[in-house]
């Protein structure tokens, strides 16, 4: 298979990793961007885009989910949000954003990926908080805790396993979504595949696909370890649901 050996050659050429001119390229306005000809630079950009998206999603979804779960309201709304985003093609949101005032490039990617990372964080925070045993809540209230203390000192710790599972889902999904950035002139590892398809260099396409797949599996592994360590030992059994 020449494609396989081409891919191997691509992966074993040091210059493909470091780029012809280093990891960064200067921009016209004096700033810099990640070089588009370096696997390492694209990988770093990939991680940065993923991190930015997930962080954005967490900032909005986590407090909202914790609050809604605590007051036990908005359950239907969270289900509707996650169903609609499942039906919404990532590419649709990406191209819509890119064609809007946001413009093509990384900003459209970060915003689109953040929107898709939003539902798992929201739903899991909501479910985790609202599923806390009513007796536990009552006992805490009966001991004289304020509502705020009940939310933060009783419900939140019990909801941690599900919240951690939600963060894992959101992160893994985002790392898998960011490759699409290449289609709207953004960066990240999808660029390797996109360039390969455009130049009919299928060895490079295969290499790019392998790199992205390996990165996704690695991120999933790291997140599963984080999820496990964030979950108190007695709660690990109950955390098995997604």
């Amino acid at each position: 298979m020449s494609t396989v050996s081409d891919a191997w050659d691509y992966l074993t050429t040091p210059e493909n990793w470091t780029g012809a001119n280093g990891l960064t390229s200067p921009t016209f306005d004096g700033g810099w961007t990640f070089a588009r000809d370096s696997i390492l630079a694209l990988g770093l950009e990939h991680l940065w885009l993923s991190f930015a998206s997930v962080t954005l999603a967490i900032i909005v979804a986590l407090p909202l989910g914790i609050f809604l779960g605590h007051v036990r309201k908005g359950g239907t709304a969270t289900v509707v949000v996650s169903n609609v985003t499942r039906a919404m093609p990532t590419l649709a949101l990406l191209t819509l954003f890119a064609a809007s005032a946001i413009g093509i490039g990384n900003m459209a990617v970060i915003l689109a990926a953040a929107i898709f990372a939003f539902p798992p964080v929201l739903t899991n925070a909501f479910t985790g908080m609202s599923n806390v045993d009513a007796d536990v809540r009552d006992a805490a209230l009966g001991q004289g805790m304020t509502r705020r203390q009940v939310a933060l000192k009783v419900e939140l710790p019990l909801a941690i396993p599900l919240i951690a599972a939600g963060l894992r889902t959101a992160t893994v999904q985002t790392v898998a979504t960011v490759p699409l950035a290449a289609l709207v002139a953004g960066g990240g590892l999808g660029v390797i595949i996109n360039t390969g398809v455009a130049t009919q260099n299928y060895g490079q396409v295969l290499a790019g696909a392998v790199i992205i797949a390996v990165l996704s599996l690695m991120i999933d592994g790291v997140m599963s370890i984080l999820q496990r360590s964030a979950t108190p030992r007695p709660l690990r059994e109950s955390a098995k649901a997604h």
């Binding site: 494609t3 891919a7 893994v172 790392v175 898998a176 979504t177 490759p179 699409l180 999808g190 595949i193 390969g196 398809v197 299928y202 060895g203 396409v205 295969l206 790019g208 696909a209 392998v210 992205i212 797949a213 996704s216 599996l217 999933d220």
Partner: peptide, 21 residues
Amino acid sequence: GVLYTIPSFALFALLAPFTGI
């Protein structure tokens, strides 16, 4: 589960060299 973790963009690209465009 492992297969599901592989991004669709990568999977299509992974198949393309063998099954064509």
